[in-house]
């Protein structure tokens, strides 16, 4: 790829990404938002991040796409730990340990 076209491509997607991140903050922050909009925005976090988790686990771009048993077991362990402890360190630790153990025995 030519240097000039690579720079142009990177500049284009970087500027577009900045505006994807900044647009709503710059447009909406000064206006009082109607109640229904606030109600819809409240669940953006849980919805987008839950969908992100599914995408990360299933890796649709990878050759070995699909969900493995070890991934499901690790995820269940992590979610249970998060509910019980509300602390991310044991969540990650237990999730990974269960994932490794189940992967080793299956």
């Amino acid at each position: 790829m030519r240097l000039s076209s690579a720079i142009l491509l990177l500049a284009g997607v970087s500027i577009a990404t900045y505006f994807a991140r900044a647009g709503m903050i710059l447009i909406l922050a000064d206006r009082p938002m109607p109640e229904p909009v606030m109600r819809a925005l409240r669940n953006v976090g849980p919805a987008v991040l839950a969908a992100l988790v599914v995408t990360l686990v299933a890796n649709p771009e990878e050759a070995n796409s699909g969900v493995e048993l070890a991934e499901v077991a690790g995820m269940v362990a992590a979610i249970t730990t998060a509910i019980k402890t509300r602390n991310l360190i044991p969540t990650l630790a237990l999730g990974l340990i269960v994932f490794w153990v189940v992967r080793a025995v299956t």
């Binding site: 991040l49 992100l52 686990v57 991934e71 690790g74 995820m75 991310l88 990650l92 992967r103």
Partner: peptide, 18 residues
């Protein structure tokens, strides 16, 4: 299999948002 770690972390954060 460390590539699995980010999914676990985000799942933990979702739980805290619920």
């Amino acid at each position: 299999g460390l590539g699995f770690a980010p999914a676990l972390m985000f799942a933990g954060i979702v739980v805290m948002m619920l």
